[in-house]
Design a protein around this nucleic acid. Structure first.
Lengths: 151, 151
DNA sequence: TCAATTTAGTTCCACTTGGAACTAAATTGG
DNA sequence: CCAATTTAGTTCCAAGTGGAACTAAATTGA
């Protein structure tokens, strides 16, 4: 049984491969993060988002990470308790709160990023430097287009 | 807040984009399948695998789809009951069973494939025909390399 | 040849997940 | 200016998930 055969014959080749790669690379990464750092997926995604924007609301994080708001809500409380993020009421809008990452949170993000970078390296090692550049450009186009188009 | 900013600055750009695209395209597809056809993710993946190989064991499906064996086990029983797949004892190895798709299962797979093909079209519409060909080649390389390299 | 190990598949259970309903605050429009 | 609607965030709960332990069958090796 050739495990790569389905890549050639599945009805939606590219979407299948993207999903396969995400399963093979990112999901085991979340497992590793859970074991090494005690963070579940929502918690890590919250850290990751806050590490790359100066300030976000929980709603922003939900949209960025495409996760339901309740999982973000839980993650916020957990990470505030643990000192990785800060939560301040928004003086201009009483509904929302301003979330920022703390130095401890940023340090944690840097540690975890190593895990995912290693996994990325492993799969991209199939490509030459030039091919990697091209893939990078194409994925950027597709990802940006997906992010800005309404569902 | 620019939702695409993180694509440029995250520590593992390509893996992040791949994961983002999988979340944006495939996971909502599973949701649609659950609502329209009443199949959960493991059940659909089982159908999908069996639609592209003449015969597989549950273990084969677990490896192909990178899902834990117990979810496949549950899916097998459910889909046998529903008449979408067939399960026959292997005369040469009493531990395993031979799984095959039925005509009803194949018809269901064709219906569901339309859902995912549409979603794939939507995201790939950001690229020209030539770019799509290149992306296809590069994703194939990376996916095959990932599939054949031991974890 | 038979004890020890490996492999396929299942069951159990603790945890995660995410939809839906809810509260509270802001905005809209008549 | 206030009733109706929208939006941010939370809580509740039913369902899904996947690790671990288990049974049974096959393989390995002394």
């Amino acid at each position: 049984m050739d495990p790569t055969h389905i890549f050639d014959v599945v009805e939606f080749r590219d979407a299948y491969r993207i999903s396969y790669l995400a399963n093979a690379v990112v999901l085991p990464g979340y497992e590793a993060v859970k074991h090494q750092f005690g963070l579940n997926r929502g918690e890590y995604l919250l850290i990751l988002c806050l590490a790359h924007y100066p300030m976000l609301t929980a709603q922003d994080v939900a949209r960025l990470s495409r996760r339901p708001r309740n999982t973000i809500s839980r993650a916020v409380h957990r990470l505030v308790d643990d000192g990785y993020i800060k939560r301040a009421p928004d003086p201009e809008d009483g509904r929302q709160a301003r979330l920022t990452i703390t130095p401890a949170g940023r340090a944690l993000n840097n540690e975890i990023a190593v895990v995912f970078r290693k996994r990325q390296e492993k799969i991209l090692s199939a490509l030459t430097g030039q091919e990697r550049q091209i893939l990078d450009v194409l994925l950027q186009k597709v990802a940006v287009h997906t992010a800005i188009s309404a569902d």
